[in-house]
Write a protein that binds this DNA or RNA. Structure first.
Lengths: 218, 218
DNA sequence: AGGATTTTGTTCTCACGTTCACAAGCTCTT
DNA sequence: AAGAGCTTGTGAACGTGAGAACAAAATCCT
């Protein structure tokens, strides 16, 4: 489930507060979800809670971390070292969550050889050997949209099986390769759309099929 | 719907290719969705296609842009000018999609007064006047997690009604305020989770309730 | 002009995810 | 030791979204 990392973060926050035990209500509140949903999610992992008591924070945290594969560090390569790629390279949130930026790759000769966040930028030609050498399974695409599909193809053929795509383009990959897409401008456009509807419907107060759509926070 | 911006991008790509008419099949392929879903989504906007022919690319593009509120430019303020905030400020994808970075705000005295991507960084104290002056409805939080809730409160009280939150924290806001969350490390953790399951189940080929989960691309 | 063909708009069905509600089980008090 | 009080785990209803299938409509060909 895609919510496991959220729970993990909430649990880590509880650990930092020195809390050693929590109920599903507490944890659900911290994670911003429904308690029943939380319990059902956790029940898929196994019965790690005790009825009448709640969950042992540290123990549950470890179990989720294990389920997420966070007992090991995952080496990741970032392709595209523009503004966004650089920001990602320097992002501190990764290292504490089992993600290690093992390599940076770019096609711009100006950037190749420079050092970003302690890692030297390698040329695209080295991609395959880098992936093989580090045993990299996960890659990040932070290139312009036009380059994304080509980069994805190269990544897949080098052996990468999971891709996080920040480029504004739809990339298609063979079956068995996981792709997640984060599109910064689309997120803002969605918010602009809400604002648009808000200002358009404020006078009329019309109904329309748009009224309830679940994205407006509670 | 959250897919409208995706359709808009696909349509823009078609315009660039000089294509003036397209069927729901073509557009759905370009957007990476099911044709039936696409038609259903578009039908909510109105009947902008002609049966037996398809959609007029330029006309449909305008209609979606209008629905998204992209006929006007939306002024946005970014709070937190670290690596990520700077990268967002410099992101070129915004301006072509009706998003204008009108102001940057940070609490670090070192950063206040510096210029990033052509905009001078303002102190937090100026937030309210900035929002009021530009009529800003949409804000981006790119601060560390600890600061996120405080910033969100300040934004809401200044009059912002839509927030895009990049900080690794759950922010709660009053009803009527829209929040979208983008969490970079969670995206990678989800991919790591897929890899974890892949390597864990590769030998056993076990079933489990996790087998089908729709996030692995086709 | 009339039918064949194509493609939209819509209805219907289905499956998934979410939520409610309750039984099972643990702890603490008396 | 037995019951009262919580809290988990799960079975059942609910609502929502996705996909298939079909009818309406426009064009093209004969």
């Amino acid at each position: 489930m895609a919510r496991l990392p959220v729970y993990l973060r909430a649990l880590t926050a509880l650990v930092d507060q020195g809390i050693s035990t929590c109920s599903s209500n507490d944890l659900a509140a911290a994670a911003g979800v429904n308690p029943a949903k939380l319990r059902k999610d956790l029940s898929y992992l196994g019965s790690y809670g005790t009825r009448g008591v709640g969950y042992d924070v540290e123990y549950l945290r470890y179990q989720i971390a294990r389920e997420l594969g966070q007992t090991q560090d995952w080496d990741v390569v970032i392709v595209g070292v523009g503004h966004l790629g650089s920001a990602l390279s320097a992002y501190r949130g990764f290292s504490t969550r089992g993600i290690r930026i093992a390599a940076l790759v770019d096609s711009d000769p100006e950037r190749i050889g420079t050092e970003v966040a302690g890692v030297t930028v390698a040329p695209m030609a080295d991609l395959e050997s880098i992936v093989r050498e580090h045993g990299i399974a996960i890659a990040v695409i932070a290139t312009p949209g036009e380059a994304a599909q080509g980069v994805a193809d190269a990544l897949v053929s080098a052996g990468v099986t999971s891709i996080l795509n920040f480029a504004p383009a739809i990339v298609t990959v063979p079956e068995g390769v996981a792709v997640r897409k984060v599109d910064l401008s689309i997120e803002l456009q969605i918010l602009a759309y809400h604002e648009q509807r808000r200002s358009a419907e404020a006078p009329g107060g019309g109904a329309g099929p748009w009224a309830a759509d679940g994205e407006v926070s509670l």
